[in-house]
Computed example of a mutant assay.
Amino acid sequence: MRFVVCGEALIDLMPEESISPAESRWIARSGGGPLNTSAALAKLGRDSHFLGRLSNDAFGRQLRSHLEASGVQTDISVSTDDPTSVAVVSLDERGHASYTFHFEGTSNFNWKADEFPVLDSDDWLHFGSIGAVIGPGAKRVLDFVRSTQAAVSFDINVRPSCLPDRAAYFALVTDLMTAVGGHAGIVKASDEDIAWLVDDDTDPLGYAEAWAAEFGLSLFIVTLGADGVAAVKPDGRVIRVPGNRVQVVDTVGAGDTFMAGFLSAFAEDPDNVAAALARGAAAAAIVCTRKGAQPPSAAEVDAFLE
């Protein structure tokens, strides 16, 4: 199966060292949720193709090089002279990442209708994160998801600093879940994503069940941080696996890597949801022990699960 991951590739500027009150040292890491997922799928041995808009500037060349070095095919990516998008990363004392974005007029958000390929039923389209909600390209992404013949999964991956209007954000996510439901697809969100969208942190699995039924999804997956992950079916059945105890360096790329681990197993055996969730949780746990989004190989995940 060919996995096509659609969305943003950007540069994460991460703090490395404070030199003086007037100077600091930063490192420019290749990032973006979809880029991370496509790289993680390739590291897990899957046929992974990145569908994104890659700038011809120096950062864009870095992103393309990173994808190709990870084993990702860039044959359906779009080359553009738009500048590369940048995210400035802040880490709290627990290694939890937050982001400030510099996006206006940049590469990821200017999709044109003729830039999307035709996918068939043997493909798996995974998309999500910022590129699915930030204009002007978000409407093009929605149209593409609606029209594709591929199997579909969507990672909501809320970024409130990009679109602080909760109602507007939820309306966009609702349109995307409706499109995914048209394919009986899969939606994934963290418990924090759901809490922010509905302004209620009491029952993320209840919302997941309601949305799975309302939108015709086959699964709604909720990652629960240290408490593991759960998949909710539209009939209310819940499949849950526990979290893994690891020494966390940072959480950059954890959700993206989870999705790669899950999809790599689920596409082979969709009847064994628990095993796919466990594989995703293991991949995410490994990436949390590393600085930045450095996804594990299939052998590393196998060893971790053993």
Score class of each variant (00 low, 15 high):
181 G>V: 10
255 G>Y: 01
85 S>P: 01
301 V>D: 09
294 Q>C: 15
184 A>N: 15
213 A>N: 12
58 A>G: 05
4 V>P: 11
274 A>M: 00
248 V>K: 11
159 R>W: 06
23 E>R: 11
144 F>P: 08
190 S>N: 02
200 D>G: 00
119 L>C: 15
151 A>P: 09
132 A>F: 05
37 T>G: 08
130 I>F: 03
43 K>H: 10
195 A>I: 02
122 D>I: 13
146 R>V: 13
82 D>R: 06
180 V>P: 13
76 I>H: 12
102 H>I: 00
164 P>T: 09
278 A>E: 08
176 L>W: 14
258 F>Y: 01
201 D>A: 13
3 F>W: 04
118 V>H: 13
1 M>L: 14
280 G>L: 02
65 S>G: 09
102 H>V: 00
205 L>G: 04
2 R>P: 12
213 A>E: 15
51 L>H: 14
96 H>Q: 14
131 G>L: 13
92 D>K: 15
235 D>C: 10
185 G>H: 07
19 I>E: 00
200 D>V: 03
90 S>P: 07
269 D>I: 01
210 A>G: 15
2 R>K: 09
130 I>N: 05
257 T>I: 13
73 Q>W: 10
164 P>S: 05
83 P>F: 00
75 D>G: 03
163 L>P: 09
56 N>T: 00
265 A>W: 06
251 T>R: 04
62 Q>L: 00
267 A>W: 11
125 L>D: 14
51 L>S: 08
167 A>G: 07
48 S>I: 01
285 A>G: 07
277 L>M: 02
78 V>P: 12
151 A>Y: 06
43 K>C: 12
280 G>A: 02
108 N>Q: 09
1 M>N: 10
178 T>P: 10
74 T>D: 06
73 Q>C: 15
58 A>R: 00
142 L>H: 09
232 V>R: 08
140 R>A: 12
179 A>Y: 13
167 A>R: 15
56 N>K: 04
65 S>C: 05
215 F>G: 09
254 A>D: 11
194 I>N: 11
192 E>G: 11
223 T>H: 00
191 D>F: 06
85 S>K: 00
18 S>M: 10
211 W>A: 12
16 E>P: 14
95 G>H: 09
293 A>R: 05
16 E>C: 13
96 H>I: 14
217 L>E: 04
173 V>S: 05
43 K>D: 06
109 F>L: 02
233 K>D: 00
221 I>E: 05
57 D>L: 02
291 K>C: 13
255 G>R: 01
233 K>I: 05
272 N>R: 15
148 T>N: 11
216 G>I: 03
302 D>F: 08
186 I>R: 10
154 F>C: 11
176 L>V: 10
176 L>N: 15
225 G>R: 06
73 Q>D: 14
243 G>N: 02
175 D>L: 11
162 C>V: 12
186 I>K: 04
